[in-house]
């Protein structure tokens, strides 16, 4: 097995890298320009603009910073939607049991059989194209796996002795659920949410590519990547820096998720 020191440095590295990303986000969000500076349009990296400028002369370093923030923001709220809906649905399914349980699980299969883009467009038709619609749509797709995990976990915990003990002491059903059973799902849920965050970020990027995601003048990393991919033969830095930032973000999130998963699985 790995030495303890190696593990600690890895954790520290992930933490520091996350702080650096946050710093970038803060700088980008505070200093972000909404209007362009046309004389600077598409200049290559210079000391003043280390990452170059985009087609409207906006500094790429700042734009990537605010894009990182927006991507994280969408990913975070989409995860929250997925976790909340998944936990409620999964616990209901596990507690009601029997025929209703089977029906509810079939329901998640049906949802999984629907193509995602259909969801996003329909949510957009009903709610308009806003950030809220975007994370509702992503959350609406991602919660099914969580519901299954919560349900499986609850079924496992339900037969444990300490639940029986709580019941003999006269604890109410809701107290048993919230105080004794749900905390046991917390570990799996948080780990899954963290490990799934990269998938959500890629999803958001793809939706932005289709024009269904974040709308201008805001730009998530997905939007920046898409603009960069379109111009990469002529202005490679427009793709290179957002792609590097995106990979860095994903690596950090993956690393944090893996660490958490290992730590929890050891206990």
């Amino acid at each position: 097995m790995e030495s303890g020191i190696g593990k600690e440095t890895e954790v520290k590295a992930a933490f520091i890298s996350f702080l650096l990303l946050l710093l970038w986000v803060v700088i980008g969000s505070i200093a972000s320009q909404s209007s362009g500076d046309l004389p600077n349009a598409l200049i290559s990296p210079t000391p003043q603009h280390p990452f170059g400028c985009d087609a409207l002369g906006r500094d790429m370093f700042l734009r990537i910073g605010s894009g990182l923030g927006l991507s994280l923001w969408v990913g975070l709220w989409a995860s929250v939607v997925a976790v909340v809906v998944g936990t409620i649905y999964g616990s209901l399914s596990a507690l009601l049991g029997g025929r209703i349980d089977r029906l509810m699980m079939r329901g998640t299969e049906v949802l999984n059989a629907l193509p995602l883009i259909l969801f996003v467009v329909l949510v957009g038709l009903y709610m308009g194209r806003s950030l809220v619609a975007l994370f509702v749509a992503i959350g609406a797709v991602e919660w099914t796996t969580l519901a299954r995990m919560v349900r499986a976990r609850l079924l496992k915990v339900r037969s444990k002795d300490f639940i029986l003990a709580a019941r003999t002491f006269g604890a109410s059903e809701s107290r048993i659920l919230f105080r004794h059973m749900l905390p046991h799902t917390l570990g799996v849920v948080i780990t899954y949410a963290l490990l799934n965050l990269p998938a959500i970020l890629i999803l958001e990027a793809t939706l932005s590519y289709l024009g269904l995601g974040v709308q201008p003048p805001h730009a998530s990393l997905g939007v920046l990547l898409q603009e960069g991919a379109a111009a990469m033969t002529v202005y490679p830095w427009l793709l290179l820096w957002p792609a590097a930032a995106f990979v860095w973000l994903l690596l950090t999130v993956y690393a944090a998720g893996e660490k958490l998963r290992r730590r929890l699985s050891r206990n």
Partner: peptide, 17 residues
């Protein structure tokens, strides 16, 4: 793993080039 981190609309044009 790097390939799983690039969205397809970045990886595809890169390979195309």
């Amino acid at each position: 793993y790097l390939f799983a981190m690039l969205p397809s609309f970045v990886a595809a044009p890169l390979l195309q080039q």
